[in-house]
Structure formats: C-alpha cells, structure tokens
Computed example of a mutant assay.
Amino acid sequence: MNASQKTTATQSQKLMIFVLTMSLYGLATLFTELIPKFQIGLVEFSVEYFLFIPLTLAMLFDPLSAALGASTGELVFSEIMLGQFGGLGELEKFITVAIGVYIAGRLVKDPRNKLAVGAAALAGTGLQLFMGAVVDVLKVQFAVEDFEAVAGLPESVFATEGFAFLNDFLFSGILFCMLPTLYLVPRLYGKIEPLLGMAPRTAGAEGGVNLRVAGICVLGFVVAVLAELAATAGMALIDWEASWAESGTAMAAGMVVAAALAVIVLLALKKNSERNVAG
C-alpha cells in the first residue's frame, strides 16, 4: 500500500465516487424497467432495483457519496431522462434510498467481514423498503390516497403493505441486493480502492450508527413523509411529463448517457491509478 494513500476520501475522490455511483446505478435502474414482472397468486416476482451497486460502493468507499449518487442516478436517469418529474413526489424515494445505502455503508467497518457485509446489505435494503411501506400506510391513514384492497388478503392497509414489503424484501432484497453485494465486496476489496488513490478500509475505520447519524436519518425520513403526503394531496409544485415520456428512444438515450458517463469515470480512475503508480 502506498504510504500516501488514506482510507478517508478527499473532496475530489468523493465527487468521483458520487458520479460513478450515479452513472452505474442510473444505468441499472433503466435496465430494471425492461425486466418483466411475473405473478403467481398473491406473490409478485419483480426486480425492484439493483441496489447492490451503491451498497457495494458505500461499503468500500465513502457511504454518503455513494448514497447520494444512487439517489441522484435514479432521479436523473429513470425519471428526468425518461421525460417525467414528479416534483415533491420524487423526494420520498430519493431520501429513503439515500438513507438505506448510507446506513448500510456505515454499518460495515471491515469489508472483509462477510457476515457484516451480508447483514448490512439486508439492513439497508430492508430499511428502505420499510420506510416506503410506512409512507404508503400513512397516505391511506391521512386520507390523501384511497386504499386499494388486494384479493386474498385482509382488507387492511397494514396487511397489504406488510405483504408487499415481505414480497420485495425476500425476492429483490435477497436475490438482487444481498447476494450480489456479498459476492462483490470481498472480491473488490483492495483492488478497486487504488484506482481512486485510496487505501482499503480496515477494521478500525470510522463507521457505525450513532445518535447523530440516527437523528439526521429520522429527520430526513420525516421530510420524505411530508413531501410525499403533500405531493399525493396535489401539492407536488412541479409535476412534469413530456409527450415522449418512457418511450423507447428516451430509454435508449438514457442508457447511452449513463454508460458513457460510467466509462468516462472508469477511464479517469484508470489514468489516475497509472499516475499514482508512476509517481
């Protein structure tokens, strides 16, 4: 390990982490739009998201940069570039995804610890899905949205949202979040950090969830709830949808831009790594 390398990221390194996460996760969210959904009885098999990408980067690098990059990537590439923007309604997913990824990244102090990586991936994914379910319950409880019963389940919003949470958590949460993260983090550890001129995180690295972190996340969730309630009640402020929204052309353009951005960042990282080795 180069003596000049540090485990903490500089501002320029955080920016690179942010852009890399934004482009890769943005590209992944566009791919999920193309994956069909299957339903057998009450159980729906659908890919909610490929959250393993920001989870992996959050555990290896700076959690906050990866978390904000993931939320921004989903907003830019799967919403705005597809010709739609829901104003305040976009805040709920933006904030809950950021909180889930951020908490998961902070929970892992040593990326070589597979048990910690797996548990953190499940915790981050479960937290994001749980917050989304709570928001949906509150929308019905505060009468800003009508309750839609599901055949075969008790006519209760708690039963409906609870079942949806378990369905997404057990399918997408394990198959497309926890397992890929558990595979990638230990294998990328020590190999990807030098690209940014950083040393790998060690067991003594700063992390964990203290009262300050928990308080900020709770405050963020409250903002997400209020924004979603306001948007559902008709106060989205900015609600825009283009005539070409979600068209094949928009989807292709979004994928090209996201892929190009990811390639540019990776090339810049490679060049930076070569410069560090030469130096």
Rank of each mutant, 00 (worst) to 15 (best):
A120W: 02
D110T: 04
A98M: 09
D110L: 02
G126C: 12
K109V: 09
I95L: 07
A98W: 01
A119L: 14
V97E: 00
G126K: 08
A98C: 05
G124W: 00
A104Q: 02
L122G: 09
D110H: 04
T125S: 12
T96Y: 05
G100L: 08
P111W: 06
V108R: 00
K93Q: 11
A116Q: 15
G105I: 07
A119R: 13
A123K: 06
V97N: 01
A98N: 00
L122W: 12
K109Y: 09
A121I: 06
G118A: 14
V117D: 05
A123M: 09
G105M: 03
V97T: 11
G124C: 08
G126V: 12
L115A: 15
T96I: 12
A120E: 04
A98E: 00
L115C: 13
L107N: 01
T96C: 05
L107V: 03
T125Q: 12
A120F: 04
L107Q: 02
I103A: 15
T96V: 13
G118I: 11
R106V: 04
G126F: 12
A120N: 07
G105T: 05
V97M: 03
V101E: 06
V97H: 01
R106H: 07
A121N: 10
V101G: 05
N113I: 11
G124Y: 03
G118K: 14
A116V: 15
K114Y: 13
V101M: 07
A98F: 04
A120R: 03
K114R: 15
I99S: 00
D110G: 02
A119D: 08
A119P: 10
A104P: 02
Y102A: 10
K114F: 12
I103L: 15
N113A: 12
G118P: 13
G126M: 11
F94K: 00
L115V: 15
T125H: 08
A123F: 08
G124T: 06
A104D: 03
R112S: 15
A116D: 14
G105E: 02
L107K: 03
V101W: 03
I99G: 00
D110P: 04
G105Q: 04
T96L: 07
G124K: 02
G126A: 12
T125G: 14
L122H: 09
V117H: 09
R112Q: 15
K93R: 14
R106K: 09
I99D: 00
G100H: 06
T96R: 06
Y102T: 05
T125W: 04
K109F: 08
G100I: 04
R106W: 03
L122I: 12
G124M: 03
A119Y: 11
R112E: 14
L107R: 00
V117R: 11
K93V: 15
A123T: 14
A104Y: 01
D110I: 02
L122M: 14
